[in-house]
Design a protein around this nucleic acid. Structure first.
Length: 996
DNA sequence: ATTACAACCTTTTTT
DNA sequence: AGGTTGTAAT
């Protein structure tokens, strides 16, 4: 068992999983197999004799918890994973509070106040007191203080403080807490704080706990750190996994410093770093590393590419946010079309700093018929119809919940307006009771109109009826309560009236059904309701259930971040994903766009921690496997002019980005993508005329973002984009952009043998788009578009003599010592490339093949064994397939799940290599604790790793010729096939089955 | 005076 | 999409 467990891991992962250390810190860079390692660690602990019910695994998101449980389940093969105490910090806290909360005076049936509730309460308090504070900011401040361990002494200081603002927040805080208490609500921070109280005062609750494992440790705040310590108090066996570079929740009081606190708290902590990246191309990693290294205060940590260098990331300037949307749509189409079926819509993600930035993008995707789904958009639970039902249930569960009462007393409209509600709340507050009690008990100071009074009593009647059902012996399932509400408010009629559009109405009805189904699931004792095992009995401690099935159901939903984007019909259809960067953490896609990379957006104007904004960009970039596009408009959606993000302007970045999308007709672009995705290189055959694209190149918009007129594109049916020079408005957005064929991803026809002719490429353009363009003639001409004088003016002269600091030399890329003359190989490359581009057409490699279509019509094929990329022994096939997060398209998943057979050892057949050579790791065995990771030469290591891959894997004649010294690396990996193919003839031929 | 509705403006990130 | 503001209807 243990051997099987470990055989799926690389060396450092194995060390981590099987470490006997009491306290273990795993620093895991992006794409390093973090989840895999953590799940294996859990399995390992179980195998070594720990009991599942005595292990706590805390994650940060519900999604992560779910995935973790599934993966542990798969690893174990029995049902023990069900017994783990596994969930988000918040949900684990709720479980403890439910069972033991009585010990610290928590009242039965307590509810959870979510973000929205907290905000409305604060808003009301602000209004009532005529404060000028911003509710959201205030909420964050209050939450921040609570997350730092409560109000305590700080409040006392504040009382004495003369600072008006502090005093104000203080007043709001006091009233806010009182309101929550009266309504028997705990907010998110309370859940953690109260649980800390509980475990501190009654450590017996966790006396059974044998091990505590924390995921995404860099996102924990001080309270969560305390919680971890308290949970682990009895055996002090702790494993944490995290990456300081991916700390993006500082705004929510996450403390990167917690890692240091850990070392202080447990001086014997062993730290192990996972450095190999199994996700991204070398070029993407190199660029990402450049970004994150701008933060000089960070713990330097290296990142080692295991994939080929691949195509340079793109940094694109566009005229406006609108054009940016249009451009993204075209680039997506270009990717999908020109790579054959290597890339589908499901492989593409658009990651945003802010959700609202999606507007223009959605418009254009919608117009072009590109299917997409929005993650982190309005959640399922935020839909009006769902909220209505849930808030009714909350009043039913807890009539003292004024918030919920106010939310739905006039939904649907019953003639109870804002004014009435407001005065009721105020009176109730004054009398220290709930509105409900107020209405039940006493004479009202508030004068109510007959209409309002009538409306309120109709509302209360519905609630009372439901509560009668609740106290009845039978018929008090959650679903039956829901049905009662749905009927009583005539929800269907209401929805039909409010949303007359049939489609809209139907989808809302679907949501109602969905929430009903959820309730039925919760009612069903048979359903495998994840994570609802009661806490294990602890000797000498009584559990006292504080929640009812209903309140538990509601609490769970409050904690559900899970945007139920379950579109049953769309499940099979690949879709472009649009998401915030935050919500994309832990996920990966072959192609990633990061639009809106302008100053004010990233870094965000409201953010006060620039380093965190930078990390956010880093997280976004490292989601990409093969292609990465960063872009910014010169005019944002508010029509204000912008400057590119400061993170992207340093000179040292120039080499790492291209200015526009790659030329897919260049011979290594598509094969490299295939290699990174571990797919067969598609056979691409079509005539240019048939291309459902206005251009094969990313040349529809000028690279500097100006609106200059461009030569009209001769492409039938194309009418939208040839009109540069017109004012922005006049782009023909409302006309159909593309003809019918484009509604579907293009599929290659196998009857026509064809080549792609670069329609508008000049030699210079082609040069500029070389996947790894390191400053040859093409880029020297008009290197980059930043309005950074220094760069534009000096570069062309400076480049050949002296490099700006931190700018890796060409030599570095090719693995030569830094001090060798850099421009020598450059000229050679240039010459070779020019020779190359004099050929009229460039063929993409043709490979015979295409096994039977895989399940459910997915036209893509996994790599058949005989042409599989070579994998060096250290890189385990399953790991390279590992994926974190499970929400990319099913098509993607399917492809990745496919068994991968390492090739037999006849190297000469392998064509598109991936993966870097094994890296010797001297001294790794005698690891000492605690150890701050990494020598600081990580820049070099990534660059040279990338360089080796380049020379090994990017298989063009010109590059091969440009590097006389290359063979010293190359021989190792069986270049025989290439040697033969290149044969010295000078005319490059794509590899094909004919060669076999 | 209160409520309902249409038109406009503004959007950080989330358990 | 939410919130705010202005205006018509009750």
């Amino acid at each position: 068992m243990s051997t099987t467990l470990l055989s799926n891991l690389n060396e450092s992962q194995r060390d981590a999983v099987s470490s006997p250390a009491q306290q273990l810190a795993i620093l895991a860079g992006p794409g390093s197999g973090k989840t895999h390692t953590l799940t294996s660690r859990v399995a390992w602990l179980l195998a070594s004799g720990l009991q599942a019910q005595n292990i706590i695994v805390a994650t940060f998101t519900k999604k992560a918890a779910k995935e973790m449980q599934e993966r542990i389940g798969k690893l174990l093969g029995d049902d023990r994973e069900q017994k783990l105490i596994l969930g988000t910090f918040h949900s684990i806290s709720v479980r403890y509070l439910r069972s033991y909360g009585y010990l610290i005076g928590i009242k039965k049936g307590f509810g959870v106040a979510d973000q929205h509730d907290s905000e409305t309460i604060i808003k009301r308090i602000i209004k009532k007191n005529n404060f000028m504070a911003d509710p959201k900011a205030t909420k964050n401040k209050i939450s921040g203080r609570k997350a730092k361990g409560g109000w305590g002494e700080k409040m006392e200081k504040a009382m004495k403080s003369n600072n008006k603002e502090v005093q104000q927040i203080d007043a709001i805080y006091t009233e806010y807490e009182a309101t929550l208490k009266r309504a028997n609500l705990l907010d998110f921070d309370d859940l953690l704080l109260r649980c800390v109280d509980l475990l501190r005062d009654h450590p017996q609750c966790v006396s059974n706990i044998e091990a505590v494992l924390i995921d995404e440790f860099q996102d924990t705040n001080l309270v969560q750190f305390d919680l971890m310590r308290l949970m682990a108090a009895s055996r002090k066996k702790v494993t944490i996994v995290g990456d300081p570079d991916q700390s993006i929740y500082g705004f929510r009081s996450a403390e990167v410093k917690n890692y240091l606190s850990l070392l202080r708290q447990y001086p014997d902590t062993i730290t192990i770093s996972l450095e190999e990246n199994y996700r991204s191309s070398g070029a993407i990693l190199a660029a990402s590393l450049k970004i994150i290294q701008q933060d000089t205060s960070r713990i330097n940590k290296s990142l080692l590419a295991t994939h080929t260098v691949g195509t340079r990331p793109v940094l694109r300037t566009l005229e406006s946010a609108e054009v940016e949307g249009d451009w993204i749509m075209h680039e997506i189409r270009r990717c999908v079309t020109l790579t054959g079926d290597l890339i589908t819509y499901g492989d593409v993600a658009i990651l945003l700093r802010s959700a609202y930035l999606s507007r223009h993008i959605e418009t254009y995707l919608g117009k072009a018929g590109v299917p997409y789904r929005m993650v982190g958009g309005r959640a399922f639970y935020d839909r009006v119809e769902v909220r209505l039902i849930l808030y009714y249930l909350r009043v039913i569960s807890n009539p003292a919940d004024n918030n919920a009462f106010a939310e739905v007393v006039n939904l649907p409209k019953r003639g109870v307006g804002d004014v009435t509600v407001k005065s009721l709340i105020e009176e109730a507050d004054q009398k220290r009771m709930s509105i409900w009690e107020l209405m039940e008990n006493g004479p009202l100071a508030t004068g109510l109109s007959a209409k309002a009074r009538n409306g309120i009593s109709r509302f209360m009647k519905i609630i009372k009826d439901a509560r009668k059902m609740l106290s009845d012996e039978e018929g008090h399932t959650i679903a039956s309560l829901m049905k009662h509400v749905i009927e009583a408010v005539e929800l269907e009629d209401y929805l039909k009236k409010t949303y007359p559009e049939e489609e809209d109405y139907q989808s809302r009805l679907e949501n109602v059904k969905e929430i009903l189904a959820l309730a039925e699931e919760a009612d069903d004792p048979e359903s495998p309701d994840y994570n609802d095992e009661p806490l294990p009995e602890v000797d000498g401690l009584e559990q006292n259930e504080l929640s009812t099935p209903l309140s538990n159901f509601l609490a769970k939903i409050s904690l559900a971040t899970d945007k139920r984007a379950k579109d049953a019909e769309g499940e099979d259809k690949p879709r472009v994903t649009i998401s915030t960067i935050h919500a994309a953490k832990g996920l990966e896609w072959p192609v990633v766009f990061i639009p809106g990379a302008y100053d004010g957006s990233i870094p965000n104007g409201r953010a006060d921690d620039t380093d965190e904004e930078r990390r956010l960009l880093y997280v976004g970039m490292t989601r990409a496997k093969a292609l990465l596009y960063v872009s910014y408009p010169l005019i944002d959606s508010r029509r204000e002019s912008t400057r590119p993000s400061n993170f992207l302007t340093p000179t040292s970045l120039l080499l790492h980005f291209g200015q526009k999308g790659p030329s897919f007709s260049k011979q290594n672009v598509v094969p490299d993508i295939a290699a990174i995705l571990r797919l067969e290189v598609p056979k691409i055959t079509f005539t240019p005329d048939e291309l459902p694209l206005p251009s094969q190149e990313d040349d529809l918009w000028p690279e500097d973002g100006t609106a200059k007129a461009r030569p009209p594109k001769t492409w039938d049916q194309w009418d939208g984009t040839a009109q540069y020079g017109e004012p922005r408005k006049s782009l023909a957005h409302d006309r159909p952009l593309i003809d019918k064929r484009n509604m579907e991803p293009w599929k290659p026809s196998y009857t026509t043998t064809m080549t792609i002719t670069p329609a508008f490429s000049t030699a210079a353009a082609v040069l500029r788009e070389q996947p790894v363009n390191l400053g040859g003639a093409g880029s020297a001409k008009r290197p980059y578009t930043f309005d950074d004088d220094e760069v534009v003016d000096k570069k062309s002269t400076k480049r050949s003599t002296k490099r700006p600091d931190g700018q890796p030399s060409l030599a570095a890329y090719f693995g030569k010592p830094q001090n060798s003359k850099a421009n020598e190989p450059a000229t050679t490359i240039t010459a070779a490339r020019q020779t190359h581009t004099t050929q009229p057409s460039v063929s993409l490699p043709r490979l015979n093949h295409r096994a039977t279509l895989s399940q459910r019509g997915n036209p893509r094929t996994a790599i058949p064994a005989q042409i599989a990329p070579y994998v060096p022994p250290t890189i385990c096939p399953t790991l390279s397939r590992h994926r974190i997060g499970g929400t990319t398209s099913t098509a993607t998943n399917r492809r990745n799940i496919r068994a991968f057979t390492p090739p037999e050892s006849n190297g000469s057949k392998y064509i598109f290599l991936s993966s870097s050579p094994p890296r010797p790791e001297p001294g790794r065995k005698e690891r000492e604790a605690p150890r701050l990771p990494m020598p600081s030469n990580s820049i070099n290591s990534i660059v040279t790793t990338a360089a080796r891959s380049a020379s090994l894997h990017t298989t063009t004649e010109d590059r091969a010729r440009a590097q006389p010294g290359r063979k010293s690396y190359g021989a190792r990996m069986g270049m025989g096939g290439w040697e033969k193919r290149m044969g010295g003839s000078g005319s490059w031929k794509p590899p094909s089955m004919a060669d076999r």
